[in-house]
Design a protein around this nucleic acid. Structure first.
Lengths: 198, 198, 198, 198
DNA sequence: CATGAATGAGTTTTCATTCAT
DNA sequence: AATGAATGAAAACTCATTCAT
């Protein structure tokens, strides 16, 4: 009877798409219902037709993006030859998925970014120091013949990567304190890294 | 040189200590100047004697914690025998420092945590799926003899650790897009992991 | 003449019955058109087919109940022996009618009750004080032989009743300032009460 | 040290006085914080300096008026000759006090009045009917010699008064359902009235 | 040093009502 | 007869910040 039911949904979807863009750019807190309404070109109260609250809008937006990511991962991981290849594939696919996930993170961490910006100089210094230290360790290891799998030229890259991974891991731990305890994870990671370098 | 810096500084420091506690518990946004003033036991406007704005308060608080972390790392890293030991030591010391850094993260990510909570179920599912996939890859690799350095019993641990590290790395990338590009980092990381497992 | 008035009227009546229930429970202000529509099981805008506004709905609901009351009074007052009996009958019948009227009052005064609740403690104290004073006057009058028609045991009851009546009368006066002036009414009432007690 | 501490309180009091006037004229619901702020000549948010919420403002306003009433009653009721005189005095003093209380009722019942206005015609009809019936009963009683204490000329007055008192009493009962039950009160009241008339 | 008072700009949310279909 | 969509107008409340004292 209803010929094109998209009509209804298209309004909802339009809101979602536009809200998604705003959330990515300005974050949850700084994006107001007014912003969304004006961007959509409708009245503020109209939004409450489709969503009971601002949180509900955000939830719907985030849900969408997150489901995309999961689909990507699941669908991408079908066949593969060796475990090694699969392992590499896992990283690759996850990477694609993450491009999508990045959108989400932009939304969620937008406010956080502003907070971090408050002391970015210090933060950056701290990072540089760590990278420098780690790099010197790596170079020394190469010099002494301890680390055989890596080359001088890659030390920068590797040092940055490891520091980034560590940094992020701690953020992750701060956000979701369940799973494994920090020490266990750290030991495991160190072992893998050491094995990987020697 | 400063005749009686205690007066000024003790008041300033008191504010900082108390604000730090509030920021850790409630985050930057949800901690109001009123909250701080009341906790300190002074008038709201008094805070503006010591800090020109709320951001300034937060900056001062964060700076303190961050400097602590840097000192810890620098002071801890003096002597060591081999590069391998130094490498391990780097991780260990960083870990201690991070316990301190956790405070900071609690402040900065407090709001973010609330946002994440909005779709934590989906988020958690996504995590579990990834861990499961990776674990099965690891087990397969062990079975086929591709991965020699790891044991069955540790697959869980390793899978969780790797996923956490990856997750966090992307957050880190989302937060600070400078440094190295995502692909480079990812390749480097994959290489290290693969080398470490085989 | 009306071919099938049931269709229209049954819908209209259904709305009225349901709205009546909601108004009684939540009052005029707190009952929204949405509430009514959902309770009826129709769309909000459908209500505007039957009533031009929310006030119109309330008017129709109230009218119904009020007419019921009037009918009850008129129909109940037909025959009677003496004027005294009729007088008593008037009170009795009115009482029955009032049970019906209570519904109305619940609708109309629902908001008022909430306002009153804001200082109910003070309000109650005030009442108790007045009752206590009046009771002591009555007891004194009985002791001195001034009030012959009443007994000690009923003083409580009488005091409460009189205070309630007075209270209510002032509310009534506040609500409908036409009719008779307050002083006239009060004198008349005092006279009746005094005569009734002596 | 502070020469005139009234300054502080005078601001609070000014708000209270002005708010009282607005509440009396427009009722609690229809008086907005904006209205009050504009009438006071200050910013909306300034009100929240002195009162945590609108309800708090209303409570403070109502408390004031109510305390006035109680003081009037208590202070006015000291000496008196006979119980009869005291009884009469009670009514008189209460009346004065009620003039003050009227303010309160105007605030509290202002919204209610609007609701009542919706069917004032019907309401009035109903009242007239009741008065007419009662009046005819009274006249009949005088004609038959049953009611000796009253005169023809006063029947109108008396009928109106009694109906008003009854009306109000039911409102009072609807508002505060504790104290005595309706039937008891009604019987008591009827008895007093009948005694008073005969 | 300290602060009470004052505020502007903003936020989410609610709701009766209209109208094209 | 029925309704989904749309909305304007308003309301309560928050908060960082300023300033005279």
């Amino acid at each position: 009877m209803k010929p094109n039911p998209e009509t209804t949904d298209s309004s909802r979807d339009e809101i979602l798409v536009i809200a998604s863009g705003l959330f990515q750019r300005f974050g949850l807190d700084k994006t107001t219902m007014r912003d969304i309404a004006e961007a959509v070109g409708k009245g503020k109260s109209t939004l409450y037709h489709y969503f009971t609250s601002k949180d509900e809008v955000f939830y719907a937006v985030a849900r969408r993006e997150l489901l995309d990511v999961i689909h990507l991962i699941e669908s991408g991981l079908k066949p593969a030859a060796s475990a090694k290849d699969k392992f590499r594939k896992f990283f690759t696919i996850r990477d694609q998925a993450m491009a999508a996930k990045a959108k989400l993170y932009h939304m969620i961490f937008s406010d956080t970014k502003k907070h971090l910006a408050l002391f970015s100089r210090i933060q950056r210094e701290s990072n540089s120091t760590e990278v420098a230290i780690l790099k010197s360790i790596l170079l020394e290891g190469i010099a002494t013949g301890e680390f055989t799998r890596i080359k001088k030229e890659h030390c920068d890259e590797i040092a940055i990567t490891i520091v980034t991974a560590l940094h992020g891991m701690y953020i992750e731990l701060a956000l979701d304190e369940k799973m494994l305890s920090a020490e266990t994870k750290l030991e495991t990671l160190t072992d893998i890294f050491v094995s990987g370098l020697m």
